[in-house]
């Protein structure tokens, strides 16, 4: 007999998860309900619908960054001037998700907990070194996104843990970020491969720090640390980006599926990485490149990586 609960607070939701083994949380339902109706998974017997838990839809700004509630929608992120200007790669990613209806209902928490290797917010959250807060009757724990993502469709959260928020740490000055994905069409698409990049420029104009992460290239979104190491200290130009991007390919084991072959994905990773790096560096230097970067690539970038 299937059961349904609609808690109005996070604490109530956590208590329900503890009480009903096998219960599943549903936020926007754009993964869970769609997969169940499509026959991919069975609809869980106990559904805990958290859309009305208003304490999961808050934004808190403090000295160590911003904390976005699990229910934060892609539509909100896409339009937020705060996220767009400080954590641009996340806004670039949310703006690409599905259709306006998908973005209005799909949540950041759901995107993370669904843990698709092709999820768009994963790579941006990795380059920000974001962490999440998980709540259960045992208390609250903080887990870096890098440790949360365990495999395709798997996280390290326990079945009774509720993701309550995602923290985006503050970034140093002269930092820019971007998320770029390769897509076959402009809407209702899932990344063929995607890359997020973060670049901090030093006083000498060189790359003082950088981070790169990939989506749809491995069983989880992953950092490409060799590419990052190479780029530090170099000039932020097309040649450096291409060299770093070539190394990013080494971080991954792409698969063949309906959207692309492993070989094609491998070849395209360096393209999206150098595009993401170019946009991140341009933003770090103060150039205004509108969200989503994917649809506003500077022509010189497109040309130099083609």
């Amino acid at each position: 007999m299937s059961r349904y609960f609609a808690p109005t607070t996070a604490a109530e939701a956590a208590a329900l998860l503890a009480e009903h083994g096998g219960a599943r949380v549903v936020a926007g339902g754009t993964d869970l309900v769609v997969a169940a109706r499509g026959g991919k998974h069975r609809m869980p017997e106990v559904l805990i619908a958290i859309h009305g838990a208003t304490d999961l839809a808050s934004l808190v700004e403090n000295e160590d960054g911003v904390r976005l509630g699990a229910l934060t929608s892609h539509a909100w992120i896409e339009r937020s001037p705060l996220i767009g200007s400080h954590w641009s790669a996340l806004a670039d990613a949310s703006a690409l998700v599905g259709s306006p209806a998908t973005r209005a209902n799909g949540t950041l928490g759901g995107n993370l907990m669904n843990a698709s290797p092709a999820m768009d917010t994963g790579a941006p959250l990795l380059v920000f070194e974001a962490d999440v807060e998980l709540l259960s009757l045992r208390g609250t724990r903080t887990v870096p996104v890098a440790d949360l993502l365990a495999g395709a469709g798997r996280t390290t959260a326990e079945p009774d843990e509720l993701l309550t928020s995602v923290r985006l740490p503050d970034l140093p000055p002269a930092t820019g970020s971007a998320y770029v994905r390769l897509e076959h069409r402009r809407a209702m698409e899932i990344a063929v491969v995607g890359a997020a990049a973060l670049v901090t420029l030093g006083d000498d104009g060189r790359v003082a720090d950088c981070r790169v992460a990939l989506s749809a290239a491995a069983p989880t979104c992953v950092r490409a640390r060799e590419a990052e190491d190479l780029l530090r200290g170099l000039r932020p130009d097309g040649a450096s980006f291409r060299d770093a991007a070539a190394l990013a390919t080494g971080a991954v084991q792409p698969i063949t599926d309906v959207r692309a072959s492993a070989r094609y994905r491998r070849a395209m990773i360096s393209v999206v990485v150098s595009r993401a790096l170019a946009v991140a560096a341009a933003r770090a230097a103060g150039t205004d490149i509108a969200v989503p970067a994917n649809r506003n690539l500077p022509t010189v970038t497109a040309g130099s990586t083609g």
């Binding site: 549903v26 754009t30 109706r37 539509a75 306006p100």
Partner: peptide, 16 residues
């Protein structure tokens, strides 16, 4: 006021 694909949204989530 927000667009929803009603085929994939739980009816009960629209309560109230």
């Amino acid at each position: 006021g927000r667009p929803v694909n009603s085929c994939s949204y739980l009816a009960l989530q629209t309560d109230g």
